[in-house]
């Protein structure tokens, strides 16, 4: 998604929020980790500088992820990821634009909530609708969010060469951990 679309989305978010801006929560240090497990190889990567925003008045949720910020244990894996699979030069960002379903902000007063999240996940320039479960919890001023869901590289037009097809899981476990502050 290009930045123009992103900004129009942000504008829509802002327009929707209006005077109840206090309902918006943000972080620029969200964590996303993915894990590919096959008998041949375990591959793990983490990105600690993820932009995330939740608007509790509209239940909108937005993520912006820089592909090159994923850190791998092995430099070679990181190179292969950026050059051959994610093609990070061509598609530097991944985004998620979605909604928390059947949820009211006041539910958070009752403690940790399991929620359904649905939206568009764009990776490698290919958008796919996903639905997953996650949790939201209020801790003091902050909102803590977690979700674990699978991503299939083939859903996003990422081709895995047959030579390494045994080394990369068909479905990659993705873990999201965010700690959001109220927007000022």
């Amino acid at each position: 998604m290009n930045s123009l679309k992103f900004f129009s989305l942000v504008l829509v978010l802002v327009a929707l929020t209006g005077s109840i801006n206090a309902q918006k929560y943000l972080t620029k240090n969200g964590n996303i980790r993915f894990y590919s497990d096959t008998p041949m190889e375990k591959i793990e990567a983490i990105n600690k500088q993820v932009n995330a925003a939740i608007d509790l008045s509209t239940n909108q949720i937005v993520f912006k992820v820089l592909m090159k910020s994923f850190e791998f244990e092995k430099a070679l894996m990181q190179e292969h990821f950026n050059e051959n699979y994610a093609e990070s030069d061509k598609y530097p960002n991944a985004t998620f634009n979605g909604k928390i379903l059947n949820f009211k902000a006041t539910d958070l007063d009752k403690g940790k909530q399991t929620v359904d999240i649905e939206g568009d996940l764009t990776i490698h320039g290919v958008t796919k609708k996903i639905k997953t479960k996650g949790t939201l919890e209020k801790k003091g001023e902050k909102i803590i969010g977690n979700a674990v869901f699978p991503i299939k590289p083939t859903d996003h037009g990422i081709k895995i060469p047959s030579a390494v097809v045994k080394n990369i899981a068909e479905s990659i476990e993705t873990t999201v951990n965010i700690s959001l502050d109220p927007a000022k």
Partner: peptide, 8 residues
């Protein structure tokens, strides 16, 4: 430098 995410 890993990129520009629309804000930073």
């Amino acid at each position: 430098l890993t990129g520009y995410n629309g804000t930073d």
